[in-house]
């Protein structure tokens, strides 16, 4: 019921989405950096929305904090880390590559590889079981045997 599910939550959290003019940084480069970081941070209250998309009050606060960090000279990684330290790596929409997420990151490639290998093996093995075609000499012999 995909979108009919439509958003009982969104009623509370969404429509007037996201960044307000007053939040924006005057420097367009820094503002673009802030947007990029906030697009990859998950809103902790409304779930499954980035703080860039959400108009939940706490998303607003986090956007403002991100911009303060960036204005204060923090790098992208530092600004992001400021929030991760408080809310955990859960807020990263792109999960970090670590032991626990190894299957998540390697899974897709492994599945494609496994599928390809399985298909190759199956097709190759089947071909072996196909009788090799007769040589012209053999064909001639068969013909004489069958058609005396």
């Amino acid at each position: 019921m995909v979108r009919t599910a439509l958003l009982l939550l969104l009623v509370v959290t969404a429509p007037a989405a996201a960044v307000l003019p007053a939040e924006q940084l005057a420097d367009p480069v820094k503002e673009a950096r802030a947007r990029a970081i906030s697009r990859d941070l998950r809103c902790v209250q409304c779930q499954n929305q980035s703080i860039d998309d959400s108009d939940a009050p706490i998303a607003h606060d986090l956007r403002v904090i991100l911009r303060e960090r960036i204005s204060a000279g923090a790098t992208d990684a530092e600004a992001q880390d400021y929030i991760v330290r408080r809310y955990g790596s859960y807020v990263l929409l792109k999960p970090p590559l670590e032991a626990a997420t190894l299957p998540l990151w390697l899974g897709p490639a492994a599945i494609v590889g496994l599928g390809a290998v399985a298909a190759f093996v199956t097709i190759a093995r089947r071909r072996e079981t196909t009788p090799t075609p007769l040589t012209p000499a053999e064909t001639a012999r068969v013909d004489t045997l069958l058609d005396p």
Binding site: R42, G88, S89, Y90, L92, L93, P95, A100, L104
Partner: peptide
Amino acid sequence: DKVSVGPPY
């Protein structure tokens, strides 16, 4: 851990 999988993944 709790992880999130979002669009970047």
